[in-house]
Amino acid sequence: MGGSSLNKPELIIDGKRRDGRSFRDLRPIKIEASVLKNAEGSAYIEWGRNKILAAVYGPREATPKHMANPNKAIIKCRYQMAPFSSLEGHSRTGPNRRATEISKVIKEVFENVVMVNEFPGSEIDVFIEVLQGDGGTRAAGLTAASVAMANAGIRMKDLVYAVSAGRIGDHVAIDFDMIEDNYSDADMPVAVAPRNNDVLLLQMDGGFTKEQFAEAKELILEAGKTISEIQKDALKRVYDVKGASE
């Protein structure tokens, strides 16, 4: 969103998107779980050209002490884009306003699914480091963080996935890359709990009619089935040594 309209590229050629996808096609997604030794749980995701690491530390004693909640674990989340992660020159690292907001909405997702009552007084840290960004990094990062959280053995109600739907002209489509994202007419990242399709994260800007919103919902739920399977496979592969499937 918000790119200059002066040099807008053709986003749709012969009914297909620039990379040959149809409107309901996801980019290729690969997830590997348990990739970092020190973290309790971790995952690496390649989603199109996005490359993102997610790691979970904790539960550990909450710091500073006055932040601790005597009844439940607090969850902290830091989403960050590496200074070298984008095509558009060096970007300042550290929390900017965009990253602060994304960190907040991702934290709220995990407050929903993590059984925080089991770890009173502790904190659980979720780190999402975008090493290379190409559109849809919050959805990809959240999808990976979910796998990292399960890999950490932290008890959760569900394995949440996230994906973005949007609009190019009259077409509602799923999973924009950076160029589509820059010149699209709407963008809506959503996180869903697959067991009941509840919406845990929802952001949107641009323009959607009621009908287009309903269409976006269908695309998200369809894509979610694929993403969920990839998440589960990543977790299963961690334990796929001989004798596992007796």
Binding site: V113, M115, A150, N151, G153, R155, M156, K157, D158, L159, A193, P194, R195, N196, Q231, K232, L235, K236, V238, Y239, A244
Partner: peptide
């Protein structure tokens, strides 16, 4: 192998590492 959110029974069961969601029993862990 089950993951968080996998339904392990369509009945309400009291089982370690699971929770009851409505009428179903669901895994909370890998």
């Amino acid at each position: 192998i089950v993951v968080p959110g996998t339904v392990v029974s369509d009945h309400r069961l009291s089982m370690d590492n699971t929770y009851v969601d409505g009428t179903r029993t669901v895994s909370a862990v890998v």
